[in-house]
Design a protein around this nucleic acid. Structure first.
Lengths: 333, 333
DNA sequence: TTGAAAGCGCTAACAT
DNA sequence: ATGTTAGCGCTTTCAA
């Protein structure tokens, strides 16, 4: 008494046509006489036939599924990207297989291979740095890959970003122009190219442009964790900084709160500019001045780029740079 | 010169065994002589053979993939659940297809059918309310379903929750015991069973227990949006409330900030207790007292429950209630 | 312990 | 416009 699955064959039989015709109707092929189409559609309706996407995937070698490798979905930065990805994916009739990597190189490899085994048509990768291993895996497979919010080491895969270098530079300049001579640079690991290459270079550029000398003592590395703000606040003051560019909102808020708790007035005595302009920056007091980057769009554009690659369309641009900006609020003068 | 895909057949030929034997090796079947296994493994390695999960799915009618329907990944509440789901899924070798529904009934149906077409082995559903339509779709398919953080209307599918009724009651009691006689109830749509049935009932229970009379004038519905807090703050004061139980952190913060901006001292002049104890509650000033619910665990347990259902294990419990608590911070006396 | 063979449900030439 | 016929790459009886 098992409920029998309805296949394309059942529909064909009931409608007195061949499987091929049913397949054509299901796939919207125009080469079907309207009368036939109608008849088939009726049978499909009556039998409640649902095409099996797995069988279709095996036969057509297309799964209309893309893999998304993400360090942590529960992080607002990444989940914003993910939302953009999914919306565009849906628009183009793709589904996404979402896999958390914790930014762990080994997991990233596992997850990628797993995704490839499932025959995804493409993959979007988010991560702080691209290890040589994962880069190797990328080039080993012919599945198109797009990096979302991660800089492309060798331009072999697609990528969508903002200009982190320029962004950091502008942020730091704002601080300098407000009269700060000792501006700190606070980011995650400098081993991550976005921090160690792009942002830090932007920071140095800004200093140089204003004839300020670079000191390592004003550069701070920290995990992006709220409670690290406390420790950092202390070190920032000790180093004599009067302002800081911070690469993460949560960390920035941690520093801001810790400073306030110590009685340091923001922005009068210490200015802060942060990076992601997430909800947090508007919720805390003082509201925080921030670089703005179009997170949702980075995701959306990444997916759009991937669809082009999957369709083998001419890739005018493999590397897309989206615009950034600055939202001035109350943590700067 | 297309790079030819290596199939199980290639491995079989090179290893001088049948496909069946290769399949056994790949699937860890013990009925293979060690020597043979070794030989096959070597060929697999040499050829860099990767099993095709789609073909496997078609043949075995199992995809080791589960569908996850979520209102919005970029919402921290849901993404916390999602993280729990994915971690347990990974643990049991499943992948998740993540699909955003925006809590829109029509999209939910679409997305579900899409997921079923992809032959997912099970689905986890998150949403504020279960419409009759989606319930119909659930029972129409034999694919196991678990609701995560959504209450089960008719106990036909699995579900994992906390006791929202009791939680709200305790929260409101805390406020009453602190001396408030006019405690407001602020939640999302009362049409959502969690709000309209569970939480509201808990609120009423608390009032009754302390001989306070229920007034509709102290019940407020609002979308979970930060900026609604401003409007709400005004209405709360106008209604004469001196405390509020709020069903969402973002909304609670909105109210708290608006009140503070109006010069109302929290908690001295107005007390607030919120619901999800997310990061936000620790970041804002005053830090907010909150109910605590194990979001990650709700996701994790949901997935665990689903694995049991997918394996047709004895389901001792189809409905799981996880413990909640209260974290007292600075928005209550 | 191993192999042969029949599908799984569909797409995609190729014919007609 | 429609049908025929091979597969797609794997699992799974059933035999041996």
């Amino acid at each position: 008494m098992e409920k029998q699955t309805i296949t394309i064959y059942d529909v064909a039989r009931e409608a007195n046509v061949s499987m091929a015709t049913v397949s054509r109707v299901v796939n919207g092929n125009q080469n079907v006489k309207p009368v036939t189409r109608k008849k088939v559609l009726e049978v499909i309706e009556r039998l409640d036939y649902r095409p099996n996407a797995v069988a279709r995937g095996l036969a057509s070698k297309k799964t209309t599924t893309v893999g998304v490798i993400i360090p942590d979905v529960s992080n607002i930065y990444f989940s914003s990207l993910a939302r953009g990805i999914d919306d565009v994916a849906t628009m183009y009739k793709y589904n996404i297989i979402l896999a958390n990597s914790d930014g762990n190189a080994e997991k990233e490899i596992n997850v990628l291979n797993n995704l490839l085994a499932k025959q995804v048509d493409g993959v979007i990768f988010m991560g702080h740095h691209i290890t040589d291993e994962i880069r190797g895996e990328f080039s080993r497979s012919k599945t198109p890959v797009v990096l979302a919010g991660s800089i492309d080491p060798d331009e072999q895969v697609g990528s969508v970003n903002i200009d982190y270098h320029e962004g950091a530079k502008e942020a730091v300049e704002l601080l300098i122009e407000n009269g700060n001579e000792k501006v700190a640079f606070v980011s995650g690991s400098l081993l991550d190219p976005i921090n160690g290459k792009e942002r830090l270079a932007g920071y140095k550029d800004a200093l140089k442009k204003h004839d300020l000398t670079y000191t390592e003592g004003l550069v701070f590395e920290s995990e992006y964790v709220y409670k690290n703000g406390e420790d950092l606040a202390e070190r920032l003051l000790f180093a004599g900084a009067t302002a800081a560019y911070v690469a993460d909102d949560l960390l920035a808020v941690g520093i801001s709160n810790a400073l306030t708790d110590k009685g340091v007035k923001i922005p009068e005595e210490f200015e802060i500019i942060t990076t992601n302009n997430s909800l947090l920056t508007d919720i805390v007091r003082p509201k925080m001045t921030s670089l703005t980057q179009p997170l949702y769009d980075i995701g959306a554009v990444s997916m759009r780029l991937l669809t082009k690659m999957m369709n083998k369309e001419e890739n005018d641009e493999k590397t897309v740079i989206l615009p950034h900006g600055i939202s001035r609020k109350d943590s700067t003068k």
